[in-house]
């Protein structure tokens, strides 16, 4: 059904992987991986039709425009870009979305969120990084807070999270902190990934999958 694309043509896409293999590595079914390929094709062909998602195409898909710079979307893109080539291939795309699947282990979600906030990849979430992210969010939402208020929020956050008070949050401290503040992990789960073929039928419609 829909627009047919042969398996041979699909294999020409860089990073294309066998859906059965990808489904065996992830919480997605084979038909869901096939549907995700249709989505991937649409996003990866939106600016340059090279079968890879670059940062501009990622932003375009998220925000429907390419001019909206967003620190956090950039950070998510960087973590999706496992091979650090500045682009996301299909295998990376499916495995990265899998992290946000409701069935993905919480321990690994915590790990991903730690890397997300450890922007300088030092193995610690440092106060200067948290301040930078806080200021970015305030700017994004056009909220104004005095510098004194920002420092007070940082003081409170680090007095709660930085148990050994060395000025930075390590992996164990982060796990401890999110276990006491489970709402912080909400962004790491997208409930609709459990049922993408019915929640987002628009891209599935064009899939050649029969078993949905």
């Amino acid at each position: 059904m829909g627009c047919f694309q042969s398996t041979a043509k699909r294999r020409q896409h860089p990073g294309y992987e066998d859906p059965v293999h990808l489904a065996s590595q992830t919480a997605f079914s084979v038909s869901e991986v096939e549907a995700l390929f249709e989505l991937f094709k649409s996003i990866s062909g939106s600016v340059i039709d090279d079968g890879l998602i670059n940062k501009e195409e990622f932003q375009l898909a998220l925000f429907k425009n390419t001019r909206k710079e967003n620190l956090f979307a950039n950070r998510i893109f960087d973590l999706f870009d496992v091979k650090k080539r500045g682009v996301i291939d299909f295998g990376d795309f499916v495995r990265a979305l899998n992290v946000f699947h409701p069935n993905f282990p919480m321990e690994e979600k915590i790990d991903f969120s730690f890397k997300l906030y450890d922007m300088d990849n030092t193995g610690f979430i440092e106060r200067k990084e948290v301040k930078q992210m806080l200021i970015a969010l305030l700017s994004e939402s056009e909220m104004r807070l005095s510098d004194e208020t920002i420092e007070t929020i940082l003081d409170k956050t680090f007095s709660d999270a930085d148990v050994n008070q060395d000025g930075k949050i390590d992996r164990a401290e982060w796990e401890n902190f999110v276990s006491r503040n489970p709402s912080l992990m909400k962004i790491m789960t997208l409930p609709y990934l459990k049922d993408i073929t019915t929640t987002f039928p628009s891209f599935v419609f064009h899939s050649e999958v029969d078993d949905i």
Partner: peptide, 24 residues
Amino acid sequence: TNFNAFDIISLSSGFDLSGLFEDN
């Protein structure tokens, strides 16, 4: 304030990936 910084940061639209699944 009762907020911690991560509560505030997690409000960013950059974390909302639902746009990926909507029509491009």
